[in-house]
Amino acid sequence: MKLTLKIWRQKDRNDKGKIETYPIDNVSEHMSFLEMMDVLNEQLISEGKEPVAFDHDCREGICGMCSMFINGEAHGPDRGVTTCQLHMRKFNDGDTIYVEPFRAKGFPVIKDLVVDRTAFDRIQHAGGFISVNTSGNTQDANAIPIPKNDADKAFDAATCIGCGACVATCKNASAMLFVSAKVSQFALLPQGKVEAQQRVLNMVEQMDKEGFGNCTNTGACEIECPKGISLENIARMNREFLKAAVTAE
């Protein structure tokens, strides 16, 4: 395959950045998108140019590092996958492909396609934890009866890998899907009840502080989420938040 890549290049946080055009040849349709980027970087290095910086780690769709906005969609045109699982067979010979970093005030660009997603870490620190007795008589989690339905929903919420595709996709750069998944995975389980009120209030407060936008329920995040996190979680967080906002002391 022969492709024309239009890639965002930005030297550092303060650089204004711009789109550069790179032609690339001999792309196999079996390559993943990241492998294609590797080939491009080899080519750039051999030409004596600066390779394109991009995030990646596991390359099997579970780490949530690869954060590219490809041809107008987070993680590209395929559904339920991260960029590393996106294959070049989803594109056609001769295509022009735009590759941009995730765009949000909460995700400042560090270099080229690499963005700083520590805002998500700070939101997690604000409340994404539970209190567990670690003094030697920790209760076996399996000893607490939990309805299968709740356990399934909590697990589904917990599959969120924090990749930030929801923020990147949302027209408001809202982080509601991520935060709601992190709230829901605990809100559904007895272990999460202890800090439930404070958790949702603190995490939402941190989310707002980081400069993410508001949810207007367009539903784009749910469709672009590589892990299929459901909008149900956002409603659950809204419920938890309203309850806590009204009753918290």
């Binding site: 239009k6 041809n71 005030k105 027209k171 809202s174």
Partner: peptide
């Protein structure tokens, strides 16, 4: 607030693929 949350716009967007 929502406009401020994305100071730099995307060069290429395909919003119709995921929302009305």
């Amino acid at each position: 607030q929502n406009k401020k949350a994305r100071p730099v716009k995307y060069a290429y967007e395909k919003p119709n693929t995921n929302s009305k």
